[in-house]
Design a binder for these strands. Sequence first.
DNA 1: GCCGGGGTGAACAGTCATGTTCAGAACGGT
DNA 2: ACCGTTCTGAACATGACTGTTCACCCCGGC
Lengths: 203, 203
Amino acid sequence: MTVHPGALSRSRRATKRPLLDVVAEVLLAQPGASLAEVAEFAGISRTTLHKHYATRDELVRAVGQRATDIWEQAVDRVADEPGTKAGLRQLLAAMIDSGPQLTFLWRNPALDEDNELTQRYIDVENRCLAVLDRARKEGVLAASTPDWWLLQTLYALVYTAAESIQFGKLAPLDAPDLALSTLLNGLGAPAAGAGSGKPDKGE
Amino acid sequence: MTVHPGALSRSRRATKRPLLDVVAEVLLAQPGASLAEVAEFAGISRTTLHKHYATRDELVRAVGQRATDIWEQAVDRVADEPGTKAGLRQLLAAMIDSGPQLTFLWRNPALDEDNELTQRYIDVENRCLAVLDRARKEGVLAASTPDWWLLQTLYALVYTAAESIQFGKLAPLDAPDLALSTLLNGLGAPAAGAGSGKPDKGE
DNA sequence: GCCGGGGTGAACAGTCATGTTCAGAACGGT
DNA sequence: ACCGTTCTGAACATGACTGTTCACCCCGGC
């Protein structure tokens, strides 16, 4: 398929973004995309793509590694205030920010093959669990909730918020608060008339 | 690869389950699985699979249609008590029960090509929205929450609960209550020292 | 101007999934 | 035993993707 000059230059601009981020998004939207499609979307030629990552497998694993890097940094950044609401908010914000990468990581069964990556994954997940556990001990999260459910719900909210942003439904700056509020308080109506929810102009 | 007689007869038993359900699970776990793998997993020959569904695309769309059927039935079943907590619980239970099928439907961008399916999808989704909206008007769900966020969170909880069950972390009978409680109350600690030992669905 | 690195397009062989056909086995009903 | 249906294994043609190579171009440094 021929690349139109216009389309190519348009893609060129996208090249400024880290290659692997673009790849993550493409492969997330179309898991079966060919390398030619991936390359075109990233604004480079298939040959060049092959020069950086010899095989498809290598490329996928590189995306996984980068996603893990990002996740790691996000978790590290909340090390200072681990158990507070603000800490949770910050963690959510950082993770939602990297929604596509993380979603790619979480949804790719193929990445389990890579032992090194799996080890890092477990590592970061444990640090995530530690943050949540700390929040539980601080009385921010319910003590009775199993840790795995906390974690899975966190993932679900990150993914949902990121998708809503990408879909244009949710403003990026609103996302962390919405996710945090949902995580902590749910979406049920406040018990009595005491309005705890943000007053919202009717739609 | 040759199929061992033992493995084959084992698969045969699985044939009792609707073919499309098995396909949904396989394609969910390994989106890139070949038709040969799908057929083997379903306990039939590739030839037979081709006889039922001429092309891969046709097969995928059939799975999507079936998933939509199931979803439709789940939503219909709560038509009698639309706005209550019990109604929401029932909806969650039915959807979690069909977690793999629904997840397959939600995660398959390729299905958007099928116009008929897309129309049905929108239809069911709207009925889902109606149920949630009703619950909001009844004071079960917070009035300020945007409908799309309600819906997405519902999806996320269904998917997460179903996955937790499949992973062996969550008992199927516990799932609806856990999901409902999380949806309504979140996972934050109760405001004061009022000891609530377990995720309560106190009425 | 010369040079080198990175990028590009084109072509190639190899591999694999797909879709199709066919002859025959297994099964169930008569 | 007969017959029709369904499933099966095998083989085949086709097409797509992959991974590789090579000649060439662009661009910035020397």
